[in-house]
């Protein structure tokens, strides 16, 4: 019982975590990415199509990554080169891509809403021989798919790159002080674009996890607002990779809990409200702490 809950919580965390890491890096680089949902959706669709056409999981993942990255690049160029407001552009991408996906499903595949092609290969879970027998730890370590491993490995990797390397320093400089970065001979807009491409790629993988990692088909509602939950997670984490991961884990746990509690009288919708409410509470708490700190300075 506990083991299955742990296992499903981790499974639900993976897409949120992947997109949240991407969004966090993007935000450190200076762009708040509201379009993660659209990149996730495109990744989910492309992964299913590629998985069925090629029969290879690797090709499917690469295609999903590419789809998200291309959308990320497009969005970034509109923001950095055409000086468009990031929030409106992000919302615009969410609207346009959701429409485009449904449009293409109808006009190219003649289906409305769900695409379930023949021969979709799915991510396989990695069984770890001895760990599997351990209580609790077995549920955590064994039976996870490669994207879950990748997502969690990316947490320390991102932490290291952001705060211990030259690349990370440049990214943070482009986000925090683009003029200074420019004066130092860096290309802050180019660096920002790169961070959005990264975010798009991660969100594309997140979409692939939903479609070829969990269900094996594509549905127009497959992302179900997870792009925005990822946004909630990296706001929760305030640019810190481990705290962001904690946020993603918390929201993944809520989702697993909600599925588990279905039919036990706990309304799913009320549990689904929690991530959004928690972010507002966390931001309020941070605001209060800031005010207290500034009041303490004479």
């Amino acid at each position: 019982m506990l083991d299955t809950l742990i296992h499903s919580a981790l499974l639900m965390t993976t897409p949120i975590l992947l997109a949240a890491i991407g969004g966090m890096v993007n935000r450190v680089g200076g762009i708040v990415n509201i379009g993660l949902e659209s990149m996730m959706l495109s990744g989910a669709l492309v992964a299913v199509i590629a998985a069925s056409a090629s029969g290879s999981v690797l090709v499917a993942l690469a295609a999903a990554l590419l789809a998200g990255a291309v959308l990320g690049l497009l969005m970034s160029l509109v923001i950095t080169r055409l000086e468009a407001n990031e929030i409106v552009v992000g919302l615009g991408f969410s609207v346009a891509v959701a429409g485009l996906v449904r449009y293409l499903l109808k006009s190219l595949y003649g289906v409305s809403g769900t695409l379930d092609p023949q021969g979709v290969v799915m991510l396989r879970s990695i069984e770890i021989p001895f760990a599997a027998d351990l209580p609790m730890l077995g549920a955590i370590l064994s039976g996870q798919d490669p994207l879950t491993w990748f997502a969690w490995i990316m947490v320390p990797v991102t932490a290291f790159v952001l705060y211990r390397t030259r690349t990370g320093l440049r990214l943070r400089a482009s986000g925090a002080a683009p003029m200074t970065a420019h004066a130092l001979g860096l290309d802050p807009l180019g660096i920002r674009d790169a961070s959005t491409v990264f975010a798009g790629a991660m969100a594309g993988l997140a979409g692939a996890h939903l479609s070829i990692g969990v269900v094996g088909l594509f549905n127009e509602g497959i992302t179900g607002g997870r792009g925005f939950i990822a946004l909630a997670a990296f706001y929760f984490g305030r640019n810190a990779p481990w705290r962001t991961a904690l946020g993603a884990l918390l929201f993944g746990f809520f989702e697993a809990l909600q599925i588990r509690l279905q039919g036990h009288g706990v309304p799913a919708q009320l549990v689904q409200m929690l991530p959004y409410l928690i972010v507002i509470i966390v931001l309020t708490g941070l605001g209060l702490a800031d005010r207290r700190r500034s009041a303490a300075i004479p």
Binding site: A84, G92, V95, A96, A98, G99
Partner: peptide, 9 residues
Amino acid sequence: QVLQGAVMI
């Protein structure tokens, strides 16, 4: 919907 999103952007 595609048109609406494009106008927004």
